[in-house]
Amino acid sequence: MTDAILTVTTLCKSFGAVQATNDLSFTVRRNDIHALIGPNGAGKTTVVNQLSGDMLPDSGTILFNGVNISRKKAYQRARLGIGRSFQITHIFENLTVAENMSLAICAHSGHNFRFLQHFRRSPPVLRELAKALARVDLLPRAELPASHLSHGEKRQLEVGMAMVGNPELLILDEPMAGMGPGGTAELSKLIRRLKGTLTILLIEHDMDVVFSLADRVTVLVYGENMATGTPDEIRRNTKVRAAYLGEES
């Protein structure tokens, strides 16, 4: 398993009497799109929060590139190369698209105690802004306030911001939530384009999206790893069909 970028071992997290994450172990291989699926209440977001550092696990380890990060803070994990998008869009509504993206760029370019030079003329922004906007097809929208974007465009912006600083692992928490079919297709195209350049952990409800994009899938039920495998293996898995896919189809 030399190609593992993320190894989760016996992860546990409980809220009072509720065991949200129960002895969870799984491995994500480098440059895969790895999907994490499960019925509502399976504890997907709890897992994401523990991976990104927004929540600390009760026990268990998270190895990222061989380093145990389970006790590190969110910003430390961000610096180590984990990018994350949120289930509820999480952008700076009052700032323009370009300013949003520039903030993400500045976050990855050392300290920001530079008081007089316009941020648009600072070297990292000059170098990366256009590229970063183009990557998520937002170059034409750059000067709009982010609050004027459509729902899908906000998602694109958020994914674009998570990708700044070239994270090795990108966690996308239900990126398709609340989007129409057009937006879903657009974003799927974007994710497919990224494939192979970095590792993506995709948390998603939409099974069509998951099975068309993912290299491997982990099924989470009651905070436990019920099965991990290729989409085909998961489709054929009788336990998964009974517990989960059965309900869907």
Binding site: Y75, F92, E99
Partner: peptide, 18 residues
């Protein structure tokens, strides 16, 4: 830019690692 970001959405800024 950073302080405007902080005024707008401080939690998100933390998410960016600032």
């Amino acid at each position: 830019l950073i302080i405007r970001g902080a005024g707008n959405n401080d939690r998100r800024l933390k998410g960016l690692g600032i």
